[in-house]
């Protein structure tokens, strides 16, 4: 499964970067969303995939039995998902605000601080 996901992640990154290179600010936001998902998956898959072994310790034991998935990348990605949401909501509101004031959708027209 890993090679398949590696290719999928590559496509996700390409899509994200393509959208971030657009001049329209809304497309930039979409690119941002794609990029954060792609990055999260990248970290998750890089550690290797495990089927049917969630990193849980059964009641009454001090260590999980058998192979479990690597918990560290999961913890990192969990943090990243939440942060990405914070960034996204900020970006969305910022874009909305910029649109209200500048009335320009074109990033090329937002080159200085004078409106």
């Amino acid at each position: 499964m890993e090679p398949l996901l590696a290719i999928a992640i590559g496509i996700l990154f390409a899509a994200a970067i393509y959208m971030m290179l657009r001049r329209s600010i809304v497309k930039l936001v979409i690119g941002l969303m794609l990029l954060s998902n792609a990055a999260n998956l990248l970290i998750f898959v890089s550690a290797g995939l495990t089927r049917g072994g969630p990193p849980l310790v059964p009641q009454g034991l001090t260590a999980p039995q058998g192979t479990v998935a690597d918990p560290l990348p999961q913890a990192l990605v969990l943090t990243a998902i939440v942060i990405a949401f914070g960034v996204l909501s900020f970006a969305v509101v910022l874009v909305r605000r910029a649109w209200e004031i500048v009335r320009a959708d074109d990033l090329d027209r937002m080159r200085d601080t004078d409106t």
């Binding site: 890993e2 090679p3 590696a6 290719i7 992640i9 590559g10 496509i11 996700l12 990154f13 390409a14 899509a15 970067i17 393509y18 290179l21 657009r22 792609a38 990248l42 898959v45 890089s46 290797g48």
Partner: peptide, 21 residues
């Protein structure tokens, strides 16, 4: 131009993942 840059970046990420895996 953007498509080429984005496509190359995607390929690079995939290759990177392969070398990690």
């Amino acid at each position: 131009r953007d498509l080429v840059v984005a496509g190359l970046s995607g390929i690079m990420i995939t290759l990177l993942m392969f070398s990690v895996l």
